[in-house]
Nucleic acid binder design. Structure first.
Lengths: 339, 339
DNA sequence: GAAAATCAGGAAACCGATTTCCGAAACCGT
DNA sequence: ACGGTTTCGGAAATCGGTTTCCTGATTTTC
């Protein structure tokens, strides 16, 4: 395959097999009607010559490129990466290639990338972003699925992790363990995720007959904030006012656990801690390892890919609007002693 | 642009402008010889109709797809991501699109992806991986550049971060601050990176007339190991045997700083700590923030893209074999008090 | 054994651009 | 006014496949 001359074309195969180009095409694509012997002879010739069909030329006549675009609003980051991974995987089995484009929050760059994707005649586009804040839909003449960052248009297809379900899992877990009074350390107040998680937490707690102690603490998604927030929870209290702290991310939870230990409290015996994200470097570095929620982002990427494929084949069955995918609770030492 | 019928073709523009298709092509590509007025008229018609040239068809006649493949040996991870980002950026300005393929350490998957890339007639391929261990070169009929994971073949083009230079920066920094006796916490012994960093450290220390105290400590790339390693350094010593600990990663350094604080030692006053990677979540969460080395992976991705482009245009000037790119030292509180 | 139905494979049109080649028109100097 | 260049723009070939007929050959049917 490493010769430098032009690659093997279909006519070369045709000549080698003593048939016409159209016959080669039919043989290799299992179309038309050919004798089994002919098919075999062509196939044999094809891979003897190392023939690899030109996808571009094929796309031209089939009016289908088998390429999808993956447009990321920002950089490909910690969240969009697994999504992309899942999508790429799902597509690869269907012989579909993935073209990546990152807009870096720049509208001009985004437009530029969209133009290129259109020029490439992609069969469809998946749009991602790092937050779950709704975004302006993109205007293109091909199917689009939004993953992680939903479209503001309810007629578009969006796939999101079900944060509300995640919080219910957490509350359920804590209730089973006997906790009744919990505090919440949240992330940035201006992000959808923070508000959704808080709301879901409050609701789930109410249903379970449990109590959210103190104001929810909004801050940022950083360890320093996590540590500071713990101090606020424990503010001038001889006895801890709660038995568990639900954190909106693993980063916050890890910092919380650190701070609690520094303040002489044992996790989980004195206070249990839960995180969110199942981010390996965080949950495993925490002492003890974190009980957390896995959003199953890779599955989300796969699902987005499936929906897009269905949409491309005009056979989509899922709901328009936002589809929520169930997360998974992972119980570890930060809530279960001796784990 | 959101009509559902077929997209605007070059003949549509031709008709609208009252010229032939070939004239449209020339007008839009600034080729051939046309009156300025004609060119303008065609252009005007083209974007009035929202014409976007079909890249596939164009590729077919130009024998150049303006697509490159980005093949990752493993998943796209923390290290390959910025590389990919840098490459994608560099390519985007040249109107080149990036096709991603992740092999997940699976030879079969890798072969499969290579076949698809060849079928797509990519102009070239960038190969990455997460470690700097040399890898088997790939066999393809197009130019290839290896980034991060070098090819075992010295005739191939590889671009790597200069870890030796990075370690020299660290030693230099510590020497300036008056340190003479340092310990080293390394990562996995079976990885090239670990050995290279250690060797460079030893050499730089020798040159600077400084001393590496104790055996280098190999372990894993995790915080638990970082903490344990600190205990080994301080083992049954009333007084710390060193004034600085050079860690092979930010993760290790952050854990080391944590552990030192727990043992009642002040960083950097009693012992200074350095990391490697400039990994934001690690250096910023550390108390104090970490002095570390930034490998400039995004620049590395850009460089890889440049080399590949040059190679595609048969105008490469850089050296065959491995090209090392200079890292950058970032000084922070873990070595400089009051920072 | 003849008519009808089925099967195998090829010729040619087509997908949507680029590019080479060529003819007509405009321009030139004398 | 005339031969000789230039300039401009179109016709047609080409890139590498797929697909639609279409024609002989073979098989089926009664």
């Amino acid at each position: 395959m490493k010769q430098d001359g032009r690659l093997v074309r279909i006519v070369d195969v045709a000549r080698a097999a003593g048939v016409s180009p159209s016959t080669v095409s039919k043989a290799l694509n299992d179309s038309g009607s050919l004798k089994a012997a002919t098919r075999e002879r062509v196939r044999e010739a094809a891979d003897r010559l190392g023939f690899v069909s030109d996808a571009g030329a094929r796309a031209l006549s089939m009016r289908r490129t088998f390429i999808v675009g993956l447009l990321s609003t920002d950089d490909i980051g910690r969240f969009s990466m697994p999504v992309m991974q899942g999508a790429e995987n799902a597509f690869a089995v269907g012989e579909i290639s993935t073209l990546v484009a990152t807009a870096r929050h720049d509208a001009v760059r985004e437009q530029h990338h969209l133009r290129t994707l259109i020029a490439r005649r992609v069969d469809g586009i998946i749009v991602t972003g790092k937050t779950t804040d709704p975004r302006e839909p993109i205007e293109v003449p091909v199917p689009v699925v939004y993953a992680l960052a939903p479209s503001a248009d309810p007629d578009d297809i969006s796939v999101l992790p079900d944060d509300a379900a995640g919080m219910r899992l957490v509350v359920d877990h804590l209730r089973t363990l006997g906790h009744r009074r919990v505090a919440h350390i949240a992330g940035r107040a201006d992000q959808n995720t923070s508000r959704v998680r808080l709301a879901a937490l409050q609701e789930a707690l109410a249903e379970a007959g449990m109590e959210l102690v103190g104001e929810p603490l909004f801050g940022e998604w950083s360890e320093p904030w996590g540590r500071r927030a713990v101090d606020l929870v424990l503010r001038d209290a001889a006895e801890p006012p709660v038995t568990a702290i639900v954190c909106a991310s693993d980063q916050l939870a890890r910092a919380a656990a650190d701070r609690l230990r520094e303040r002489g409290l044992r996790v989980p015996d004195d206070i249990a801690v839960t995180g969110y994200d199942n981010w390996h470097v965080m949950w495993s570095a925490s002492r003890p390892p974190l009980t957390t929620v896995d959003m199953e982002l890779e599955a989300l990427g796969r699902r987005a890919a499936e929906r897009l494929l269905a949409e491309i084949q005009e056979a989509d069955t899922g709901p328009r609007g936002i589809e929520y995918l169930p997360p998974r609770l992972v119980a570890r030492g930060s809530t279960i002693a001796g784990d």
